[in-house]
Write a protein that binds this DNA or RNA. Structure first.
Length: 191
DNA sequence: AGTATGATTGCCT
DNA sequence: GGCAATCATACTG
């Protein structure tokens, strides 16, 4: 059984940074992760800040699993749980460079522009067909797949990671826990 | 039981 | 740039 290529027991900001450039597939559909955000229980902006609730239970579960929540009553957002069980940390997948299952993503998103398929957390959820049924699922088993390199390998060029303040939060807004690939055209916003 | 609030997106001016 | 869409969760009474 292949182990995950990332140690999810590390701090969420370290995991969020390490995930940039790695490939995430859900049911064979996905691409390179180009933008993430870290959250932690000791972080006023995190869903886990006020302790466990039915919604955020997955964040307090074992690391290396998915935490999926409904955003603004409309979108599904995908997080990867970090730290140890009971801690309440995770990484939000904010944007990806589509590399696999482009046509399915186009169909689910209802548009053709590759640049807009996964440029934002709600868009990632829709493009990868993620919903509440994925909450708490292990990342080392189907339908999830985490790879060190793109399926259609383009070479081992170094990934330059930018950091900045997180988007759309009101508390702890100064913390530089948003990470992204320098020069990527698939970010939800520029850094 | 009623109300306020988003880790967002897309369409409008 | 402004704002509506839409609903589970959290908070108030």
């Amino acid at each position: 059984m292949a182990a995950l290529i990332i140690d999810f027991s590390a701090d969420s900001d370290a995991v969020a940074r390490a995930l940039i450039g790695m490939t995430l597939l859900v049911g064979g559909v996905g691409g390179r992760i180009v933008e993430t955000e870290a959250y932690d229980q000791l972080d006023a902006a995190s869903h886990s800040f006020s302790g466990p609730t039915p919604r955020n239970a997955a964040m307090f579960g074992p690391p290396g699993r998915a935490y999926v929540y409904r955003s603004y009553g409309i979108h599904w957002c995908l997080n990867l749980v970090c730290r140890e069980e009971g801690h309440g940390a995770g990484v939000l997948i904010r944007a990806m460079e589509p590399t696999a299952g482009l046509e399915q993503m186009r169909a689910l998103r209802g548009l053709t522009d590759v640049r807009l398929l996964c440029a934002g957390p709600g868009r990632v959820g829709q493009a990868l067909n993620v919903d509440a049924s994925f909450n708490g699922m292990r990342l080392d088993r189907a339908p999830f797949k985490l790879l060190a390199q793109p399926a259609a390998n383009a070479g081992a060029e170094t990934v330059v990671v930018l950091e900045g303040p997180r988007i759309g939060i009101s508390k702890a807004a100064d913390l530089p826990w948003r990470f992204g690939e320098a020069g990527s055209r698939f970010l939800s916003r520029r850094f």
